[in-house]
């Protein structure tokens, strides 16, 4: 009796299907790759998945607020280019300048996107697609060919072992994990403030939120600012990893971040979903590539198969919303 109730409650939650898919994928990959459950493998996975996880979280915030950010990849690339351009390995203090400049640039980028979508009420897809070219253009101006330098201590943002004094901690704690935890902590706090509540309200029903006294444009701008902050984290992480900037680095990440959020159960219509579940979405998106690699699928079919897996993942996570719509019709909920 109690078991049935529990199953029913779990089945009625959007998160369940996403977690289920993730578990299945981990099981598959654990079978394919014999050394999956080793510290070494885990560490390499965490290191390579972190950028997408962070971008997916930022994207989730924006989508929940009723927007979309088609510029998150180039935003990240621009911040990376600015920072690697400023830094001079001879003078460690320039690393600090780079961080400040990067953060300021992130704030400007978030504000511009937020202004276009929130205040000018431009369609989010088009507006941010347009701004993505602006960020890319500036990035190409700053760093025409991949290059730039970082100061030594910046490498610690990728791996604490790169800094002698922190190497001890670095043995046990990967930097990548710290970045994800930091992003989670920030969202955890925001979620409990007015801004966090209003982000959901604005995305769910913009007009009613406005009538309830919420400054909807301000809230959407806040969402874009938060997203830009997470892009900044990724930029710092990449700077530590690559030690150089590349204007074209982020291109492929943008749509992957959107897809990750959707696979994680964030509804494109806004107001629904969880930023934390976007992490699960990003893991699923990342694992797709690994599974295909270890399954020995011929090169020629890899892209094709990964497309099918992603569609299947999205379809599974939307079964829930389809069922809910039907239930609403039966119960006769008017505003859906």
């Amino acid at each position: 009796m109690n078991d049935k109730k529990l199953i029913k409650r779990l089945a009625s939650r959007a998160e369940t299907s996403t977690v289920l898919i993730l578990v299945v994928m981990i099981a598959i990959i654990a079978c394919l790759q014999n050394n999956f459950f080793t510290v070494r493998t885990m560490l390499s996975y965490i290191n390579s998945f972190t950028p997408l996880i962070l971008l997916a979280m930022g994207q989730a915030v924006v989508i929940i607020a009723g927007g979309l950010d088609m510029s998150c990849g180039t935003t990240m690339a621009l911040l990376l280019c600015i920072m690697t351009r400023i830094m001079d390995p001879e003078r460690p203090v320039t690393g600090l300048y780079a961080l400040v400049a990067g953060l300021a640039a992130a704030a400007v980028i978030g504000a511009v996107n937020g202004f276009a979508v929130g205040y000018l009420r431009l369609p989010a897809v088009i507006a941010t697609y347009a701004t993505s070219y602006i960020w890319l253009g500036i990035a190409l101006f700053v760093t025409p060919t991949p290059g730039g330098k970082v100061v030594d201590w910046f490498r610690g943002f990728y791996d604490l072992k790169n800094i002698p004094s922190l190497a001890g901690i670095g043995q046990f704690v990967p930097s990548a994990l710290l970045w994800v935890l930091l992003a989670c902590a920030i969202w955890w706090v925001v979620r409990r403030t007015k801004t966090g509540r209003y982000i959901y309200a604005v995305g769910s029903h913009n007009d009613n939120a406005y009538d309830s006294g919420i400054n909807t444009a301000k809230i959407q701008t806040a969402a874009y600012l938060l997203n830009a902050l997470f892009c900044f984290f990724v930029a710092v992480y990449y700077a530590g990893q690559n030690g150089a900037g590349n204007a074209n680095l982020g291109d492929s990440l943008t749509l992957q971040a959107v897809a990750s959020a959707v696979v994680g159960g964030v509804a494109m219509s806004g107001g629904k979903g969880s930023v934390f579940m976007a992490i699960a979405g990003a893991l699923i998106m990342s694992l797709v590539g690994r599974i295909i690699y270890f399954a020995n699928i011929p090169n020629a079919y890899q892209t094709f198969v990964s497309g099918i897996i992603i569609i299947a993942a999205i379809a599974t996570s939307s079964v829930y919303s389809f069922q809910q719509r039907r239930a609403q019709l039966k119960g006769g909920v008017r505003n859906g």
Binding site: R197, A201, H205, N208, S212, G271, K272, N335
Partner: peptide, 15 residues
């Protein structure tokens, strides 16, 4: 109604 569909009853009342 002027309610937000994805928020709970008490969240709407306090909105």
């Amino acid at each position: 109604l002027s309610l937000i569909p994805d928020l709970t009853v008490w969240q709407n009342i306090a909105l």
